[in-house]
Amino acid sequence: MLSILDRYILKKYLGTFSLLLLLFIPIGITVHLAEKIDKILENEVPMTEVLIYLYNFTIYFANLLFPLFLFLSVIWFTSKLANNTEVVAFLSSGVSYYRFLRPYIIGATIVCAAALVFSMYLAPKASKGFNEFAFKYFNKGRSDRDQSNVYTQINDNDYIYVSYFNVTEKIGSNFTLEHFEGNKMTYKIAAGQIKFNDKDSTYTLFNYSKRKIGETNDILKTQHKLDTVFAFSMEDLTPVTYIAETLNFTELNDFIKKEKARGSSYINRYEVVRYKRWSLPVSAYILTVIAVAVSSVKRRGGMGVNLAIGISIGMVFIFFDKIFGTMAEQSSFSPFIATWFPNFVFGILAIYLLRNAKR
């Protein structure tokens, strides 16, 4: 049963967080629109598409930055409580510091649960719309797909490689397909150029050659041009760089399982996206505890000092999150450690600050 204290703090927790979102989202939209308005006008984008894009933009960045918004909102209203000597009154009435913290944890649980559902199922749709619009109108000349040195395993036995694939013309160069039986290669197909035909979903190979590897000698077959069918699609040749962001929780797990079986070189990138969907909502708890510990003490400089400390801590958290996420995507560094390490470090900081605040 919630007490008057619980309801009072919980109301301020959720109310201030909602108010901060409502204040910052229009600012973010205005700044982003001012930056992109020239390209929108240049491309004569229909107003309906712009409105849908701004809607997707709002969801996309609210999902990424909600821990920071939550952190600042807790510092803001808790600092006001401290400046009005309300925190002292609560604690002087016999309420322990951990009991005082309870409504904050309840509020963090509500926000965390909502953010978890949001990031698992709603944000992926917004991410797809946001990225597709950006590459269509803002990044003309750039592709949203990996086009160079595409190498992937398409099933248990076949591996394909293309040195470069032009998405617009659907033409690739230096194509090879290697077929294995166990650990032994049985044949290899090579072509100077491969072209995907939309009309019938076939491929045309130019300067085609197929080498069948035998026990004592090889059989080589060459042909200037060959129309054929393969068991892979153009998506296998040119994966979309942000594909993991556009999949909901169930789809993402199935997709990663499939990509691992195929030996995809982008597994770390996909794993980072999956782990962040869990780590960011959990950070709501950690940042809430830090915010309370920092702002529940009445300081000589007032709310300004608490906000300055809070913003500094928030920026360091974002820095850690971005640095380790990029490190995992670009190297063999563990995606699990990369996404959870900021929570681990700031969790220790939360415990330290909480003990000091309690004293």
Rank of each mutant, 00 (worst) to 15 (best):
M1P: 15
L5R: 14
D6V: 06
F17S: 08
L21T: 02
I27R: 02
T30R: 01
T30P: 08
K39D: 09
K39R: 11
I40C: 10
L41E: 09
N43I: 12
V50C: 11
F61W: 14
F66H: 05
L70R: 07
I75D: 01
F77C: 00
S79R: 12
S92G: 10
V95D: 00
Y97G: 09
Y98E: 01
F100M: 04
L101H: 09
L101V: 01
I105W: 12
F118T: 07
S127K: 06
K128Y: 12
F133K: 07
A134T: 15
F135H: 04
N139G: 13
Y159M: 10
V162I: 12
S163R: 15
K170I: 06
K170F: 03
S173R: 04
N174R: 12
E181W: 12
G182C: 11
K184P: 06
I194M: 02
I194C: 06
K195Q: 11
Y203E: 05
G214C: 01
L220M: 15
V229W: 00
S233Y: 03
D236W: 11
D236M: 09
T238H: 01
P239Q: 15
E245P: 08
T246E: 15
E251M: 10
L252F: 06
K258Y: 12
A261Q: 15
R262D: 14
S265W: 13
Y270P: 14
Y275M: 07
R277E: 02
V282Y: 14
L287A: 06
A293S: 05
S296L: 05
I309S: 05
V316D: 00
T326P: 13
S332W: 04
N343V: 00
F346G: 02
G347P: 02
L353G: 02
R355A: 15
N356I: 13
K358P: 08
